[in-house]
Design a protein around this nucleic acid. Sequence first.
DNA 1: CTCGGCTATTCCACTAGATGGAATATATGA
DNA 2: TCATATATTCCATCTAGTGGAATAGCCGAG
Lengths: 277, 277
Amino acid sequence: MENQQKISSDKSGSDHSSVRSVMRALDILALLNEERTALNIRDTSAETGLPKTTVLRLLQTLEQAGLLWGLGGGQYVPGPALLRWARIADETWMFPPEFKDVLFELSQTARETANVYVRKGLKRICIAQAAGPQSLRHVIKVGDELPLWAGAASKILLVNVPKTFLEKVAIDSPKGMEHLTALQQSISEAGKNGWAVSHAERDDGVSAVAVPLLGSDGRCIAALSLSGPSSRFSEDRIAVFIEQLKKSAQKISAFTNGGLRTRHVALSNLSNNQGDK
Amino acid sequence: MENQQKISSDKSGSDHSSVRSVMRALDILALLNEERTALNIRDTSAETGLPKTTVLRLLQTLEQAGLLWGLGGGQYVPGPALLRWARIADETWMFPPEFKDVLFELSQTARETANVYVRKGLKRICIAQAAGPQSLRHVIKVGDELPLWAGAASKILLVNVPKTFLEKVAIDSPKGMEHLTALQQSISEAGKNGWAVSHAERDDGVSAVAVPLLGSDGRCIAALSLSGPSSRFSEDRIAVFIEQLKKSAQKISAFTNGGLRTRHVALSNLSNNQGDK
DNA sequence: CTCGGCTATTCCACTAGATGGAATATATGA
DNA sequence: TCATATATTCCATCTAGTGGAATAGCCGAG
């Protein structure tokens, strides 16, 4: 469970067009995770709501592409082509070692999980993380997509976006449009304070604190957050977290010259995909 | 160049069906590699032969899925969803550390690149490798797909496959069906000897030696090879290589109990996807 | 060994939806 | 400013993906 990330359900700003079969195929692929490492036709069909015939065809296609490896008997496991993508992903999204160091250090001193998120359409995506040392910890993995309508990091990422976009975010939330005012409220606070907190907004019992990572132009390019069980996020600890986060953010800005970048693209270029032109 | 790996051109045994648009989308994605980390419409259109309109739509679809990240202005770079794939790939295709150790050791003592290949349809795929120490070396990356009609490793992987399958392999080669007899010849030799060599079969100036990795049932589940410039593959060095390869293969068999496996699937299960039932 | 239930796989008529040519907008540079 | 090259939108056409139904294949129970 937990994996409700049907990609195609991403009714984002530019949801039009998009080749259906491709989306479907990728949705199927997205069912895989660390626990679920094999797909069969019946379950896949049930989980996607697609007719078995269609599922079969798509699975076969993915197999031919090497993304899945068919074991026969309707069993499909992650295929070797993924290794190629892994290489490219690691290559492209490789951050300077200092970056990881700072993240790790932060997770250790705060004793909570540290994450970095960027905004993408109506989602935020975890692009880096360091797990906290405690056995009860918040687990988010690199590459995971989370909604933008909840969480401390979201508030940071939404500072200064046009209202039209906020409306889309609100619609995406369970409460729908009613969520808009609350959203605006907390975002403007985040903008004023330079940090944001959240308690059980998406998951029960999970709290988080986040601060922005700023580019050289002063614009927010990503959010740095600490998250864990609400029981460990008391008022005073949060104050401490904020200081630690700010310190870490500063360190990162320092060695990146305000230009956190992937292997080939400055991250600041990436924040322009909202649906606004 | 070098990257002629149009996935859809894989007219393998079960080439039927396959959703075209999915294949096309993945073909486009496959244009990316470590050098080429951005796609625009014109080039992509030219390289795939697809009309620009179609390319645009597919790129947008891939963007929505998070596999590409649109920078605007027709520029697309690898997206964060790849990170998720990378995680799954690493998780699934993780081999025991000893395996890598043996590979590395082999590459150092032989001073050539060591690779492990498995067969998949009409291709062989590199699933592990350790680069040789010399500056002039043969470079194959994990995840790369190579043809089955050439190379020492191919011969090893094709021992004991039905003739009908060999015919398909031959057809896949540049020489077509004429290649069949030569293929059968070298394969039967490989079967007898327990090793195989190749000189400039696919790339000019590249030679290789390969031996099988055997499963507990004695069946070949993968090929272990050393490859490099032909100038360093003289008769006597080859003899040495064979010994080193055999020794390494034995070590691997030892700690894997003849059951080299990915995280969730024994590799021996994977060799059944040929087109034979 | 056979039957019953379950799942994968093949078949095929239908039409949703992908396609791509042409027109338009946008950026770049002279 | 115009010229050129590229991205992007539009829409009539008809391919090719779809999914319901029928078949084949696989256990496990009786």
